[in-house]
């Protein structure tokens, strides 16, 4: 697929390959955490694996099983996961003109449009469009391979362990969210938004059905984004 778009056979840049592989493997390892979290939330091994195969966007998967684990409704779980995945649409808008795929290739390209494939593609911007395309495909497919492999291992491992709480797995899920969040807190304004969303969630939790506080925290993002220009220098 890396080769089929324009018909030419570009040689794979070894630097892009190395970079894509290291990203794929590192990110793929998080799949263990997802597999374990999914089992801890009451999903089966098959369901956990299908999540990684079909949903294939890590934060949304964690959100879906996380909301279910906290007693939220199916609607709350699906909404939280979908809202968390909206950034993939933005990535798609950036990648589509670069990839120029059609038909099945476009469908596969869309499925592997995630943080990492887009990130690696954009990091190759100085090397030109061919390197960017290679970065996108190699990273997207690489993450897909390792993410699914490690989800299976994590799910099987967690299944062997039994009660999630007695192994601390119920703390692993929020810790994973905190880790994902941490990477994004690159300015004081963003830290403030995170803190506001946390306080908001604590305050509204006793007053709302389970799962709803998570979705309504997007209000914090809307308010903050709306007024950002005036509050940020």
């Amino acid at each position: 697929m890396i080769l089929s778009k324009t018909g030419e056979m570009p040689t794979i840049d070894p630097r892009v390959l190395r970079y894509s592989l290291s990203v794929s493997l590192t990110v793929g390892l998080y799949g263990i955490a997802f597999g374990a979290a999914s089992i801890a939330s009451g999903f089966s091994v098959l369901q956990s694996c299908l999540f990684s195969l079909l949903t294939f966007t890590g934060a949304s998967q964690f959100a879906a099983v996380g909301v279910v684990a906290s007693g939220g409704t199916a609607f709350a779980a699906i909404s939280a996961a979908t809202l968390l995945g909206t950034r993939n649409a933005l990535y798609g808008m950036q990648m589509a003109p670069l990839l120029e795929n059609r038909g099945l290739n476009k469908l596969i390209a869309a499925h592997i449009t995630i943080d990492e494939s887009t990130g690696v593609a954009l990091s190759q911007i100085e090397q030109g469009a061919s390197s960017m395309r290679q970065g996108f495909w190699l990273t997207g497919l690489g993450v897909f391979l390792f993410w699914n492999l490690f989800t299976l291992l994590g799910a099987l491992g967690a299944k062997q362990l039994g009660t999630p709480a007695s192994w601390g797995l119920d703390a692993g899920v929020p810790a994973a969210f905190l880790g994902l969040l941490w990477l994004r807190l690159t300015s004081n304004f963003l830290r403030l938004v995170a803190l506001a969303a946390m306080i908001f969630t604590v305050v509204v939790t006793p007053w709302m059905p389970a799962g709803l506080p998570i979705i309504s925290a997007t209000l914090v993002a809307v308010v903050a984004g709306w007024s950002e220009r005036s509050s940020q220098s």
């Binding site: 959100a63 950034r87 994004r184 969303a197 908001f200 969630t201 914090v220 984004g225």
Partner: peptide
């Protein structure tokens, strides 16, 4: 707003979990 949504949601998820 779109850039802030993951931050708000992940923060809420940490607290909820």
């Amino acid at each position: 707003i779109n850039a802030l949504i993951p931050i708000a949601l992940l923060s809420a998820l940490v607290v909820a979990e």
